[in-house]
Design a protein around this nucleic acid. Structure first.
Lengths: 335, 335
DNA sequence: TTGACTGCCCGAAACGTTTTGGATCTCCTA
DNA sequence: TAGGAGATCCAAAACGTTTCGGGCAGTCAA
């Protein structure tokens, strides 16, 4: 016998009344409601999720499809963000589903499985790309979603993002003010929006300062990628005096490549990263970096999603968070 | 109208037959089955998850409750592991749910919500503790689960774990063979099983080599923790010549503390970590470390879970994976 | 006294599947 | 030709909730 039926008969009430009492409907006597709630708590009653979502026509779940680029899944900070996001979602009764997808092809397949099977009510899209087929798919299907990062046309969807362009422009300006004239950018793959925007910030600031954008390399977003790209940049006849790296992982690889050339970061050459990975403060020299200036971006992401599910328009749910510079020892005075 | 009903009527069949055809029952004519499958593929039919799991009495989902210790959620490698695990689980039709839990109290609460609401069919328990109430709860409720890491009495449940004791014993032996006589251990919190076992390995190897276990500190498993603990160890009148760290994060903090004292890792003093974090190969000097020697531990974890759901006994589902030493530049010849 | 209204409660339908327990038809054997 | 054995198929029940559409007293105003 179903739990609810059991509870109802033990109270001498109908399942209707018990259900309504627990859901807080007004047409239940206050006394009855209290009696029901007490009894429910006593036996530890929880409605069966499948039955409830079948009847209610929603899954009470949010899906995150992990974009599995070759190598690493994503920056470690994803896990913290998802934790914060899940905590907030739990407050309003939603659970978080984590779906890894292997190939590029299976990515949309995973989405459609979740949408068609009504397994998820909304989506979180990570690592957005300039042209993002996931966004296109969800828009076409009319499923609510929020992206972490923008796309080329961010106007028509809800997103949360750091102001990478401003952050990288500021860092570039900082380097220029220190006297650097040959400022290189070690970029992440440009189809990723965050990488594109960071590069834009760098390029814009160079133009503003009348400096040439001659030194630039695209790296896979790993230490190895940063290492290789930096070595390539050091082949030039005139080598850069500053290396603005798209991520801290890239910067760590860059530091290694520079040291192998006998260049001391923070003295002979400047290096700045982005993400403020936990380890960067303990490197020697400590890495100058930057980070999104928000206490809990996962929670903010969840808030956007909740508002979206509540019917708010995507246009009103677009958050760009400021970037905070974290100057340490590697952006050094020099040139 | 339900999708299934629609599909059935468009084919001139009953929903029973369509359902059975898709599920591969033998009492459907081969011709009919093929016709049904083709039609289902054409319209992109997917059974409604809620309805299916209501009827089938299982959620087709596995839950991971993230233990949120203060500070960081867990080692970044968790995300990769979960991705591998989810990929394997998806192959047999299970989805992965990620549930962050805030306080210690809400942890069991989260478990019971999922169990009572039949939201998950099985659990993955991360960061096991010597005395683990989560394990006790799941055992008492009779819910299948697999832990990542052992408990004090691992015999009665299924787990996957690295052989931390052997790995740390081997590393200690390596240091002893290099001539180190004062080998310190910078431990992680000892209520965590992995930390306990690593410390056991260190202590056992010291005893075997007739060396004293005099230098030891417990650190929170972060760079900051390693930094502080190492500084404390350096206060001793006779300071250690080798620092065996429970994790790479701790080791990175240790490296910093040592450098501040003018001690060069790999020359004046030896440091070894564990986890082989992506950045450790690019540090200068590159960190000597170790790691679990398995291509995809997440997938193996999923395999255990699948076997467990298939009815296998927990005793037959216990995997201890070997640890591979990753010697680099910091375990240096010296003493 | 009657009718409308309110406060509280309940029976039954509905959600979209899976599965039980036959029903029908054909073919084969005795 | 009867009857049994297979091969296909299907109607209806079931899963455990939520919610629609009343029903029944009691109260209040006319």
């Amino acid at each position: 016998m179903s739990q609810l039926r059991q509870l109802a008969s033990s109270l001498g009430l109908s399942i209707t009344t018990v259900s309504r009492a627990l859901d807080g409907y007004p047409d239940v006597a206050a006394k009855t409601r209290e009696r029901v709630q007490r009894a429910a708590r006593a036996v530890g009653y929880r409605p069966n999720t499948a039955a409830r979502s079948l009847r209610r026509q929603r899954a009470e779940a949010i899906a995150v499809v992990l974009p599995s680029e070759p190598g690493r899944v994503g920056p470690p900070v994803f896990l913290d963000m998802l934790a914060g996001c899940g905590t907030r979602l739990a407050e309003v009764g939603f659970d978080l589903m984590l779906l890894p997808s292997v190939g590029r092809l299976s990515e949309i397949d995973t989405y459609s499985r979740l949408v068609d099977g009504r397994r998820a009510d909304a989506f979180i899209v990570l690592r957005t790309r300039l042209e993002d087929e996931r966004v296109a798919y969800l828009q076409q299907r009319g499923v609510p979603f929020v992206t972490h990062g923008r796309t080329r046309r961010p106007d028509d969807h809800s997103f949360i993002d750091g102001d990478g362009a401003a952050g990288f422009a500021a860092a570039t300006g900082l380097l220029a003010d220190l006297g650097h004239r040959r400022i290189a950018h070690v970029a992440a793959p440009q189809h990723l929006t965050f990488a594109h925007l960071r590069r834009c910030g760098w390029a814009a600031a160079l133009a503003q300062h009348g400096l040439p954008a001659l030194w630039e390399a695209e790296a896979s977003p790993t230490e190895q990628g940063g290492y290789e790209a930096t070595r390539a940049l050091l082949q030039a006849s005139e080598t850069p005096t500053a290396f603005l790296c798209a991520t801290d992982s890239i910067a760590i690889g860059a530091l290694r490549a520079l040291k192998e050339r006998g260049l001391r970061a923070g003295r002979d050459v400047a290096v700045i990263g982005h993400d403020n990975l936990p380890s960067t403060a303990f490197l020697d020299p400590a890495l100058s970096t930057m980070e999104i200036d928000a206490p809990d971006i996962g929670r903010e992401l969840a808030d956007l999603l909740i508002a979206r599910l509540g019917g708010a328009s995507p246009r009103d749910l677009q958050t760009i968070l400021p970037i905070r510079q974290v100057p340490r020892a590697t952006h050094g005075p020099r040139s």
